[in-house]
């Protein structure tokens, strides 16, 4: 697991020189674009049959057809609802619990070792339990996503809070800061980069959990669309779902990165 990837650097080095700027924005798209072109060519040349790998244009047509029938927008909206609600619950619980254990020794002794113990359970193995406890409706799916999101948020927040430079804390003490000020001015900003890494990781977990959650009794959602397509070898819809997941993942990741740029503008290289 990458839960401890707190060393992950946050968006380093934006060069000031303009001509580098544009190429920097374009280069990351080069590999996906090349793949797309190669894919289209092989599909058109008939190297692979359409049932194995339909051409990107076929996938696009499938996407348009499903959008016009209203099926894709509806499933997308439902998935987004489940993902967002599950994420919000998991992230808030994880954050609050980490605040308790990160800031209070009593809470840490009472809770942290239990959480660390449970965290290694693959959360998808909890599906049967979740069905029994929460049924098969929306609460079950949202709970699964929340559990998946909880751990990276908890662990990174806890780690961030626990690894605040003690010298800065001593400085805060010497300069007469109240406990609240210590938290607001020193502990929280110092933990923030690590917390954001946790959130970025949790967003990834959110999507992967959702696909699986949407195979448990449901008739809506992108995960449902793709397992359903898989059952009947509907390759173009499977690929469409994969691409949608990739795009949603990229979108949420970019949003957190934008948030990082806003909140962590003090880091070298982030300053505009």
């Amino acid at each position: 697991m990458q839960l401890s990837t707190t060393q992950l650097k946050h968006q380093t080095a934006l060069p000031s020189r303009r001509r580098h700027h544009i190429s920097r924005q374009l280069i990351p798209w080069l590999v996906p674009l090349m793949l797309l072109i190669v894919w289209q060519i092989t599909a058109q040349a008939g190297v692979l049959s359409a049932s194995v790998l339909p051409a990107p244009t076929t996938v696009l047509q499938d996407g348009i057809a499903l959008t016009q029938s209203g099926e894709l927008p509806r499933n997308l909206a439902v998935s987004l609802f489940r993902a967002t609600t599950g994420f919000a619950i998991g992230a808030i619980v994880g954050f609050v619990l980490a605040l308790l254990t990160g800031l209070s020794t009593t809470w840490r002794l009472a809770l942290d070792s239990s959480v660390q113990m449970v965290r290694n359970i693959p959360h998808l193995s909890l599906i049967p339990l979740v069905i029994i406890w929460f049924g098969i409706g929306e609460p079950a799916k949202i709970t699964l996503v929340a559990i998946g999101v909880f751990f990276p948020v908890y662990i990174n927040t806890f780690h961030g809070l626990a690894s605040v430079d003690p010298e800065l804390l001593e400085m805060g003490h010497v300069y007469g800061l109240t406990r609240w000020q210590q938290f607001r001015q020193i502990i929280f900003p110092s933990a923030l980069p690590t917390i954001l890494v946790g959130i970025r990781y949790a967003l990834g977990v959110m999507w992967t959990t959702l696909i699986v959650a949407e195979t448990v009794s449901t008739s809506s959602g992108i995960g449902y669309m793709s397992t359903n397509a898989q059952d009947f070898l509907d390759m173009k819809t499977i690929l469409l779902c994969i691409i949608i997941y990739a795009l949603l993942g990229k979108l949420s990741d970019t949003m957190v990165k934008a948030l990082e740029r806003q909140l962590l503008s003090w880091q070298k290289g982030n300053v505009a």
Partner: peptide, 9 residues
């Protein structure tokens, strides 16, 4: 000895 400034401020 070290400045102990808060880097985020």
């Amino acid at each position: 000895q070290d400045d102990r400034l808060l880097p985020w401020m």
